[in-house]
Simulated assay, not measured.
Amino acid sequence: MNRRPASPLSFWLLIGVAGLFLALVLAPAARAEAAEGCGPWPAWEQFKRDFLSDDGRVIDASEADRRTVSEGQSYALFLALVAGDRAAFDRIMHWTENNLADGDLTGHLPAWLWGRANDGSWTVLDSNPASDADLWIAYALLEAGALWGERAYSLRGARLAARVLEDETFPVAGVGRFLLPGTTGFHPTDNTWIVNPSYAPLQVLRALATRFPAERRWQQLVDGSAVMLRDSAPRGLAPDWATYRAGHAFDRDATATDDTTGSYNAIRVYLWAGMLDADDPRADALRRHFVPFADFIAARGTPPEKVDAATGAAAANDGNAGFSASAVPFLVSLGQRALAAGQAARVARLNAESAPGYYTSVLTLFGIGWYEGRYRFAADGTLRPAWSATCTPR
């Protein structure tokens, strides 16, 4: 259709009106996503003040033993990398290695629990590893090695990743591989395995498959984890834990006693799915599968604290700020930006009303940090922190 060119005066008037609209109408959260990714990260600095000791230990003060878990160390390591905070990264890495991995991350999976023992000493309280922490530590080290050009990080990450693959995964005929939550306690019978869906973020697994293409078991783990995430959530709602039975997959019969609650563990399934790159071949199907979670938020205005993955029922209680923070990337990935902005605003309001604990804080850093454009995962799973490029978040 032919149109008459606008006059210069009309053109500049249009620009002025558009500028006024952008300045006054756009939601603060949406502006943050476009503008804050490259600046200082106040939430990370607050996390360090609240939870990180001078020597690099993440302290969960809500527990009487002022414990440290390997999950906290792994998340802090990753978030320090996102922040470009190499000094904190090194402190966290060395504390983790020295206290959880017998001084050698290349030779030992880190123990999951450290704290005050009954005799008053500070030591490992449970030496069983946690595979999600092990994966995130290996991933953060490998990405840091690439981004900072530090071979010592890469070496630690590669050897830790190899140990995860060897000690914490198992083959599933016709499917691929699954991740065990730890080395012991999750294979109760010859034909039964217990898994935690939130332990298997596909972008992290894909990055490891990309970095080690000759080791085909990584791709098998990507493939198997995608099946596990889908099949353990028959109603599109993720459980905290699920039981896989050879020959029956995740099907439950009338005698099944395993808990099908989805809550503080499962909320991370939606977080990881939402942060997948749109070009990841598993992203679209996985997000569509979990749309019922977004439907709950749209209907009630908040994520439920608990759902029953088997029946699809939701509890009356609302999830806390960490639940809303985890929902934000997922809602954005579905194109529900207004709903995402509302959850981001809820996070800010709740965290202003009362100081968040350790877990809520890390979920907020993950979800809102992503929303602010501080980092992205590429289609191959590799990390793209804002500081590593032109500092213009997409």
Rank of each mutant, 00 (worst) to 15 (best):
Q336D: 07
M1K: 15
G115A: 11
P197V: 09
E215K: 08
A316E: 11
A23E: 13
R394V: 01
A316T: 10
A133E: 10
V17C: 15
G145A: 00
A146N: 00
R230H: 14
G247K: 07
N191E: 13
A285W: 06
A294H: 10
A101E: 03
A111P: 15
P171G: 04
I194L: 00
W193D: 14
V82K: 11
R252I: 01
L109C: 09
N351R: 12
L141G: 08
G115H: 05
L24C: 08
I194T: 01
L205A: 09
A138T: 02
G84I: 06
Y371I: 05
R66P: 00
R252F: 01
L125I: 09
G357D: 15
M275F: 10
L180P: 04
S74T: 07
A76F: 03
P28N: 13
P304D: 13
G182D: 10
A214Q: 12
R163L: 14
S263H: 01
D134F: 00
A389E: 12
N320A: 04
A285E: 15
S361C: 11
A83S: 00
D132T: 09
L26F: 04
L81P: 07
L14H: 13
A80Q: 11
G335P: 03
G149F: 07
D132N: 06
L229Q: 08
A34C: 07
P171C: 01
A226H: 07
A152N: 02
R337E: 08
P329Q: 13
R282M: 05
R230M: 11
T243H: 01
L339G: 04
E97M: 03
M228P: 05
P28G: 13
T189W: 03
A355M: 04
D318C: 15
D240R: 15
L155W: 13
F51K: 06
P42T: 06
G176Q: 02
T392Q: 05
L24D: 08
L205G: 13
A27W: 11
G107T: 12
E63N: 13
W218S: 01
T106I: 08
S263A: 05
Y264G: 01
S154P: 05
P393E: 13
D258K: 03
A242P: 05
S263V: 00
P181C: 08
V58E: 14
K306S: 06
D85T: 09
A87I: 10
A111K: 15
V347L: 06
D60G: 13
A254S: 06
F47L: 10
G381I: 02
L20N: 03
W136Y: 08
S333F: 09
A378F: 00
W241Y: 01
F330L: 09
F47Q: 09
A283W: 13
G72M: 02
I297C: 03
